[in-house]
Simulated scan of single mutants.
Amino acid sequence: MSKLIDPIASVEDDTKSPVSVPSSPKDSPRTPIVALKHKHEDKPLSRSSSLLDMLHLKDVHIPTPPAVKFAPLNVPRHRRLQTAVVATWAFMIPICLTVFYGSLIFSKWLRPLAVAYAIWFVLFDRAWVHRGGRRQEWIRRSAFWKNFAAYYPITTVKEADLPADGKYVFGYHPHGIISMGAACTFATESTGFSELFPGVVCHLLTLDANFWIPFYRDILMGMGLSSVSKRSCRSILKMGRSICIVIGGASESLYAYPGTNDLTLKKRLGFIKIAIREGASLVPVYGFGENDIYELLPNEKGTMTYRFQKWFQSTFGFTVPLFHGRSVFTYNYGLMPYRRPVTVVVGSPIAVKQIDKPTDEEVQAVHKEYIEALQALWDKYKDKYAKDRKSELKLVD
């Protein structure tokens, strides 16, 4: 726990007289200067008084930032490789943007190709909406993702078999900061999804904004990711395939404190309606430890940070949680996730009757059944995979 120290008290300058206060405008041709006084003292503050005194913050305790904890030099090679893989993915978006704009601006040989590529994906390519991306098994089974999952590590636990001839809507909880558990389980084969559920082809869904980033979009589509839009969801399910939606979305990332399990689910009915209209079974999924891989900075309701994040979310469709983790060379400062285990438990399927136009009562009934199944999943595995939890499962919104 960080030590708390008193801020350095200001030193009163005895060699100079305090600022005088004219008794009336007649005493001085200029506007009188009002002396600021410390709340515990009657005498006016001198010119050398600190800003903390002037703001009545002398008694405020300011926590001392923890000392930087550097990573040792004698780290095993396989752990160095895992860290390098995670660091590469953490900076994949700026890497892709640098390659694209570097080719566009600085290379006369690559510029025509960059322009043609931009025209193609902006005007013509909609695979991420209509076809579930361009899923490639060699990308999903790459050793890159094996090392990525081993870094935390991330593992997947199956509670029940899923018939290969069915189609499913997997609901992943919690969102965390970046949903690493969902990415490894449903967008790669690093945790053996196809071996656990043979014949089930699932597409992880994400925001449309990710598919407007050059090159990065192609990597995502190769992993089988697609748009989380209604059109995309129904298109994939009509193909006889399955989808995974991180239900809490951007709002839930604001509650992703380590050890907590606060979910945004009460008003999330869209995935229920899609499952009913397409006759797809619902499967609750819980990522134990998802909220532990980053440290979220305080953002209680009413604070400026919270208001800014909610405004940003309402304006741009996603939010910006303020968080920190570690880096390649330090263990307590940086933007890389911590090495903390994440166990993704895939629950039992909930059969859903297909209805083209479900009523509100029918949607609410299925939604209630889903919440009960998710609660049962939590209660069954919490003492095994969330031993150090600070709170129980709670629906906050």
Results as ranks from 00 to 15, higher is better:
residue 37 K to T: 14
residue 314 S to E: 11
residue 21 V to M: 10
residue 185 T to S: 09
residue 113 L to Q: 09
residue 269 L to V: 06
residue 282 L to Y: 03
residue 182 A to S: 11
residue 140 R to L: 12
residue 117 Y to R: 06
residue 183 A to K: 00
residue 130 H to V: 07
residue 334 G to H: 09
residue 277 R to L: 06
residue 103 S to A: 15
residue 120 W to F: 11
residue 117 Y to C: 08
residue 352 V to S: 03
residue 23 S to I: 10
residue 396 V to H: 04
residue 129 V to E: 06
residue 261 N to P: 01
residue 259 G to K: 04
residue 35 A to R: 09
residue 246 V to R: 02
residue 246 V to C: 00
residue 78 H to R: 15
residue 66 P to L: 12
residue 149 A to F: 03
residue 244 C to Y: 02
residue 101 Y to F: 15
residue 52 L to Q: 13
residue 169 V to K: 00
residue 175 H to S: 06
residue 395 L to S: 04
residue 138 W to Y: 15
residue 218 D to N: 03
residue 331 Y to T: 13
residue 281 S to T: 13
residue 78 H to I: 15
residue 36 L to G: 08
residue 308 F to W: 15
residue 46 S to A: 12
residue 347 G to L: 02
residue 245 I to A: 02
residue 207 L to G: 01
residue 166 G to K: 04
residue 288 F to E: 00
residue 204 L to W: 03
residue 43 K to F: 15
residue 359 T to A: 05
residue 160 A to V: 07
residue 170 F to N: 01
residue 249 G to F: 00
residue 342 V to E: 03
residue 108 K to M: 10
residue 279 G to K: 04
residue 393 L to V: 04
residue 352 V to G: 01
residue 133 G to C: 10
residue 158 K to E: 10
residue 153 P to Y: 09
residue 18 P to W: 09
residue 190 S to R: 01
residue 339 R to F: 01
residue 393 L to A: 07
residue 98 T to M: 13
residue 164 A to K: 03
residue 315 T to A: 12
residue 328 V to A: 13
residue 242 S to Y: 02
residue 68 V to K: 11
residue 286 Y to E: 01
residue 33 I to D: 04
residue 89 W to Y: 13
residue 171 G to C: 14
residue 50 S to G: 13
residue 289 G to L: 02
residue 53 D to K: 13
residue 315 T to R: 08
residue 116 A to P: 07
residue 197 F to D: 00
residue 267 K to H: 13
residue 140 R to T: 07
residue 233 C to G: 03
residue 161 D to H: 10
residue 37 K to P: 02
residue 215 F to W: 05
residue 65 P to I: 10
residue 344 V to A: 03
residue 345 V to I: 12
residue 323 F to S: 01
residue 393 L to W: 02
residue 285 V to G: 00
residue 221 M to Y: 09
residue 318 F to V: 02
residue 253 S to L: 04
residue 275 A to V: 06
residue 216 Y to D: 11
